[in-house]
Design a protein around this nucleic acid. Structure first.
Length: 515
RNA sequence: GUCCCGUUCGUCUAGCCCGGCCUAGGACACCAGGUUUUCAUCCUGGUAACAGGGGUUCGAAUCCCCUACGGGAUACCA
């Protein structure tokens, strides 16, 4: 019965895409996709002074990064273009003329000072401050005189007065207002540029938009636009004005508590699917007991009507948790791929290419220990570095177990004569292939080309028994010696990753500097 | 000031439209235990909420009214 839905996201390129904008885009996108409709992007660049190419690029990149694509709009074209408002000026003029002819718009010559003065008067009288409609009913002669004296005026909308208007809102329900509360708002500026409300209506009409999801700061604009649609003899889209995203304090999200620019999340290494998931959850819930869901799952259930009507606060902690959750569930091969842009110097590019097995193993060892892609760099650096330096905790462990330090050299000797994988990234492909890390307890291949984590553990346990030292006391200094830290993957995964030469060298270095 | 919207654990929310299944469920965070060579993961358990006040009703988180608090809008910005 209803036509296929057409929704849009209509940002103005005056800054980067922020979290709130991304969520708005997301809901519009989802509503379209869920119903097999179209999603388009329209650029509202009528504010020429503030619009920039750079902002546009950032917005498009931000949308793509969270996984939002569009059927019509910049870079993809479409049958309802152009998709930049500054390229549609003639269209607005045509509609403006139609409205003038129909008596629904009039020219206003009031100076900014006069408008302001009128506002203050109303305010003082306890009424809503707005344009006092002083030029609403000018005679033709008065109009001509003013134009001759002051030049072209702005085109204002002749708001029907004293009329109760109810706006059916998909999110808020029916919202009513007396139209007299609304301004005779400016549709076209004296320079011919349309304002937001006017261009928006013309475009939504021309582009066949059926639903509009947008922030609740536009609720009042919803009335203005709906009335205009009515006077144009057209049906307004179904509006859904959704609550804003707030910061921890319940105030507008500020840069202090969270990144406002969506691309900052990309740069910090958040998993985009998690950002998508989390943002979706800010005001919409998949089900009573499931927070993590795929796009496909979401689309199967999404309905605009289910978007919550109360504001929500942005919680970076949960976002991070969710990012980590996505990482944990990722295929290790994919993780390696996606972590690559973030490793910097920690894993030299040459090693990345020459020793995929080693890199895979190293990264996989940290899969459940990171929440952001970017965290991998610092974590794995010790594997690929030439030597390590101890952090405070590691140094403490070393001094605390000073009695076992002498044994480190002996352990080094033992490893030196053992069949460990090589420390040379290029010479250990078979070893890394034979032992996918992190090693699971109990499992160990039989026909292995070298010692694996389990064999290494057995070896060290025997070593301790021979020398009558506590296994638990050796483990910590060894870990510190090898990795420079006290936390990390299983100790024998660490030994394995390092390979013989590096493990031996680090044990000896630690023994020397702490003995 | 005026108009509009909102208010369930610290946070995101389920439940509310179509009153009883709600001794209010889930998730993050937090606390306690377990697994473990460390960290992390994982598992088990716990703390914790219907803004307040009036109605309506046999019965209200759910319906109505008032108050308080929060947010938004009050532009020739979007």
């Amino acid at each position: 019965m209803t036509a296929t839905p057409r929704l849009r996201f209509a940002p103005s390129p005056t800054g980067p895409l922020h979290i709130g904008g991304a969520r708005t885009a997301l809901y519009n996108w989802a509503a379209a996709r869920a119903q097999g409709g179209s999603f388009l992007l329209r650029i509202e660049d009528t504010d020429r002074a503030r619009s920039t190419e750079e902002s546009l690029r950032q917005i498009l990149a931000g949308l793509r990064w969270v996984g939002i694509d569009w059927d019509e709009g910049p870079e993809v074209g479409g049958a309802h273009g152009p998709y930049f408002q500054t390229e549609r000026l003639e269209l607005y003029q045509r509609y403006a003329q139609q409205l003038i002819d129909g008596g629904h718009a009039y020219e206003c010559f009031a100076t900014p000072e006069e408008v302001q003065e009128g506002r203050e008067k109303l305010q003082a009288a306890g009424q809503r401050p707005m344009y006092d409609r002083r030029h609403r009913d000018l005679s033709a002669a008065e109009r001509d005189a003013l134009r001759a004296e002051r030049g072209p005026g702005s085109l204002r909308f002749r708001m029907p007065l004293d009329q109760q208007w109810t706006l059916p809102d998909l999110c808020k329900g029916d919202v009513s207002i007396n139209l007299a509360e609304l301004d005779d708002w400016v549709m076209i500026r004296p320079d011919g540029m349309p304002t937001y409300n006017f261009a928006c209506v013309v475009d939504d009409l021309e582009m066949g938009i059926t639903h509009v999801v947008r922030g609740e700061e536009h609720l009042m604009n919803g009335f203005k636009q709906a009335v205009l649609f009515d006077l144009l003899g057209a049906a307004a889209p179904q509006y859904a004005h959704i609550p804003l995203i707030l910061g921890k304090g319940g105030k507008k999200l500020s840069k202090r508590e969270a990144s406002v620019d969506i691309l900052e999340y990309r740069d910090k290494g958040y998993v985009p699917e998690a950002v998508f998931n989390y943002i979706t959850l800010l005001g919409w819930s998949f089900s009573g007991d499931q927070d993590v869901f795929s796009k496909q799952e979401m689309l199967a259930k999404f309905r605009i009507e289910d978007i919550g009507s109360s504001g929500s606060k942005f919680d970076d902690e949960k976002l991070r948790w969710m990012s980590g959750d996505y990482i944990r569930r990722m295929d290790p091969a994919e993780l390696v791929e996606r972590v690559r842009p973030f490793v910097g110097e920690a894993i030299p590019a040459a090693v990345f290419d020459a020793a995929p097995g080693l890199v895979r193993n190293a990264v996989a060892c940290y899969q459940e220990r990171i929440e952001l892609f970017a965290e991998i760099a610092d974590k794995v650096a010790w594997v690929f570095a030439d030597a390590v330096s101890f952090d405070d905790q590691a140094q403490k462990k070393m001094t605390k177990h000073a009695d076992v330090v002498p044994h480190l050299a002996a352990y080094a000797d033992l490893l030196e004569s053992s069949n460990l994988p090589s420390s040379d990234p290029a010479a250990r492909a078979a070893a890394d292939a034979a032992f996918p890390l992190p090693s699971k307890q109990g499992a160990e291949p039989v026909a292995e080309p070298c010692m694996g984590p389990a064999a290494l553990e057995a070896q060290l346990r025997a070593f301790c028994e021979e020398r009558d030292i506590k296994f638990g006391h050796v483990v910590h200094p060894v870990r510190a010696a090898l990795t420079g830290t006290t936390a990390g993957p299983g100790l024998f995964d660490c030994v394995f990753l390092l390979g013989r030469d590096k493990a031996v060298a680090r044990l000896r270095a630690a023994a020397a500097s702490n003995g």
